[in-house]
């Protein structure tokens, strides 16, 4: 019976060349052409001397970028806990202060914050000298870490707060009725559920930090972008920027897929 039905079914009509299909093929063709053009350009501009000279520099720049992001994210994560706590507390003063902190760091450009710390602390040189902190603030590297940590702490506090508040109240009540105290409830019941919600925002925050870290090149930190700028200033060879773009894109894509993979792993129980 089914065989008959199979044989009498009309053949699928050929896919027509609609406007969308033509446009899609043209656009994909353009992307392929752009990609091939890029590869052809990089091959034609291939210069072993240039590579021998700049590959180690780029690698050290990459190391600086990754270290800067890692250190800032960790310090930011530590700072974000009290800020998130203050944001959620019923104390009016604490809540307002934390809100003002978060609003300031999320409402102004990171580059302006970095400039304010790096160039601005010079105005307080005498005071800083007196407490012995001038050596710290004179280094662009420490200023960058400070600015980035303060900035990401504001964003991470909001992520943490949103994630904790996404856990239903009943979870707290259930844990309390089982006799767990607040800290235990937080650690054993609420946080494991909150972190699943927070994983994707955290991943996005790390990606945003990697992209934003390029601006430290302007305050003379030689991260990947700084090395790129230096290489371009010395050679006037545009491929320096192309290679930097390739490296940044590779890191960001790798990280994005990593977060996707972790999310699939830790949500297995939800789509069983």
């Amino acid at each position: 019976m089914s065989a008959v039905a199979e044989s009498t079914r009309p053949p699928a009509p050929p896919r027509r060349w609609t406007g969308a299909r033509i446009a899609g093929h043209v656009l994909v063709g353009l992307w392929i052409a752009a990609g091939l053009g890029l590869v052809a350009y990089l091959v034609s501009a291939w210069d072993p001397d240039l590579f021998a000279r700049y590959v180690p520099l780029y690698l050290s720049g990459l190391g600086v970028t990754l270290l800067l992001v890692a250190v800032s994210i960790v310090i930011g994560a530590i700072l974000s806990v009290p800020i998130a706590y203050a944001r959620m507390s019923s104390n009016r003063l604490l809540g307002t202060l934390a809100y003002a902190y978060v609003y300031f760091f999320r409402g102004t450009p990171l580059i302006a914050q970095t400039f304010m710390i790096y160039y601005g602390v010079g105005s307080f040189r005498a005071e800083l000298d007196a407490v012995g902190l001038w050596g710290f603030f004179r280094e662009a590297w420490y200023c960058a870490i400070l600015a980035f940590s303060l900035n990401t702490a504001a964003y991470q506090a909001e992520i943490l707060r949103g994630a904790i508040e996404s856990v239903p109240r009943g979870q707290w009540e259930g844990a309390a009725s089982l006799g767990l105290h607040k800290l235990q409830t937080m650690w054993k019941v609420v946080l494991p559920q909150a972190l699943i919600v927070a994983l994707r925002p955290y991943g996005n925050e790390i990606i945003l930090m990697i992209k934003a870290s390029a601006i430290v090149a302007i305050i003379t930190v030689y991260d990947l972008m700084g090395e790129t700028r230096r290489a371009y200033a010395q050679t006037f060879d545009f491929q320096t920027y192309i290679w930097a773009g390739v490296i940044y894109l590779a890191i960001v894509e790798a990280l994005r897929h990593c977060v996707d993979w972790i999310e699939r792993r830790i949500t297995v129980h939800q789509n069983r």
């Binding site: 899609g24 994909v28 992209k211 601006i215 894109l249």
Partner: peptide
Amino acid sequence: PSLKLAGNVYTTIFRGLPELL
């Protein structure tokens, strides 16, 4: 599918590169 691919390539590239770059 080709149109989808072209759009996805666009967002992947320009969301992955630092704005400054």
